[in-house]
Simulated scan of single mutants.
Amino acid sequence: MKKIIVPVDFSDHSNYALESAAILAKKYDAEILALHMLEISETILTKGEADLQAETVFFLKLAEQRFTDFLQQDFLKDVKVTPIVKHFKVFTEVNEVAKEHNADLIVMGSHGSSGLKEIFIGSNTEKVVRHSDVPVLVIKNKPTNLSFENVVFASDFSESTVTPYINATKLFDKLGANLHLIYVNTPGDNFNSTSEMEQIVVNFLQKADGNLDKLSEVKYISDYTVEKGILNHANVSGANAIAVATHGRKGFTHFLAGSISEDIANHSSLPVVTFKIK
C-alpha cells in the first residue's frame, strides 16, 4: 500500500478518517493524499472572467491556508502528507483523483444517515462508495485501535463478485487480515437450500481461487435481510471490519433498488470496506 486518499471537509468525521489513514500510513510506509473539494458557487461562476479568476484564486488560497492549519496534527507526525485542493464537488471526482494518482485506498469518515434524509440526500461518503473503482474504507468513530485482524467478507457468491473478492483478498493480505467468508440466506424469492448454497460457493471458489481450500471456512447465516445478517454476524463474531462488494447503482435505479453495501456503510459501527463490481 503506497497511496491513501482522504477527502477532507474539516469536520470531526473527516478528522477520524485522516487519523485512521495515518495509522495505516505509518504501518505500511504509505503517503496520504489529503483531498479538499472546494465548491465554487453558481454566483461566482456567473461573474465575468476577470472577477471569476480573482475570486477563484482567493478561495483556493483560503482553502490552502485552512488545509495547512488542519494538517498540523500530532498523529500526522512522520507521515508524508500531500494536500490537494480541487474546485469541484465531492461525489464522482474523488474516483478520478484516485485513478490519476494510482491510489490504493480511499478513507472517508461518515456519521451515517437514516430515514428520509438517507433516501433523498444521502451522504458524501455514500456517493463516493457508489462511484469509486478504488476500495473505500468508511470510518464512523475516532480510531482508538484500528485493526484488521478479523474481517467479514459478505457475498452472494455470484460470478460478478469474483473480482471484488480477489481485490479484497489482495488488500487484506497486505493488511495481515484473516478474511472470513459469509453467505446470508434470506426468506422469500432469494431463499436457497443448504445444498444449493454449497453448490453456489463451490462454483465461486473454483472460479476465484482455483481450489476449494476455503470451502469449510464459509459461514452460512440465516436472517430476515442480508444487511441484518451481515451486521449481526459481524457483531457476535468479534469482527474488526466488514468488507462488501458494491454494484455502484446510480440515479433512479439506485433510488428503487438501493444498495446493500451503502446501507451497511451507513449503519455499521465497524469500519466498512467496499469493493466495486465492474
Rank of each mutant, 00 (worst) to 15 (best):
V201P: 02
S261F: 00
Y165S: 03
H111S: 10
L171I: 12
K174L: 14
F204H: 05
H36L: 09
A25I: 05
N150L: 09
D78V: 05
G176Q: 04
L205Q: 06
F252G: 04
K278V: 12
P83S: 07
E49R: 01
V226G: 07
L105Y: 08
T68E: 14
A243W: 05
T92E: 15
L18I: 09
S268L: 01
L179D: 08
N150T: 15
T274M: 07
F70G: 02
L45T: 08
V90A: 13
E55H: 09
P271G: 03
I139P: 01
M197Y: 02
L181D: 11
L71Y: 07
G115K: 06
L205W: 12
G176Y: 03
Q65K: 15
S114Q: 14
S268W: 00
Q53I: 05
K61A: 10
E96W: 09
D69L: 12
F148I: 04
L137C: 03
T56A: 04
K250D: 04
S147P: 06
L270E: 00
K214F: 12
L62N: 14
N150G: 05
F255Y: 14
V128P: 00
V236H: 11
L38R: 09
I32S: 08
L105I: 01
K219A: 14
K99I: 10
A241Y: 13
E64I: 04
T246A: 13
H13R: 09
L270Y: 06
A168L: 10
A208P: 07
L146E: 05
K117R: 12
S222V: 09
K140D: 11
M37K: 00
F204T: 00
K170E: 14
A245M: 05
I106F: 00
N232P: 01
N235H: 09
S110I: 05
P271I: 03
F88Q: 10
D263K: 14
E19Q: 15
K170Y: 08
T161L: 08
A25W: 01
Q65L: 10
N266D: 12
T194E: 15
E100W: 04
V184L: 09
T194R: 14
G48E: 03
T144K: 13
K207N: 08
F120H: 05
D156R: 03
A243F: 03
A63E: 11
S269W: 09
G112V: 07
Q199I: 07
E55K: 13
S158V: 03
T169N: 11
F157E: 11
N178A: 10
E159C: 04
F255C: 03
S20I: 02
L171N: 06
N266E: 14
T144S: 13
V94S: 10
A208G: 01
L24P: 06
I32H: 06
D51Q: 12
S155W: 00
H247A: 13
D156F: 06
T46R: 13
V107L: 03
A17Q: 11
I5D: 09
S155C: 06
K86F: 13
E118C: 02
A22M: 04
G176P: 02
L38P: 06
V57S: 14
H247F: 05
S123H: 03
G248M: 09
L38G: 11
V201E: 04
G229V: 11
P83Y: 06
S14D: 08
L171H: 02
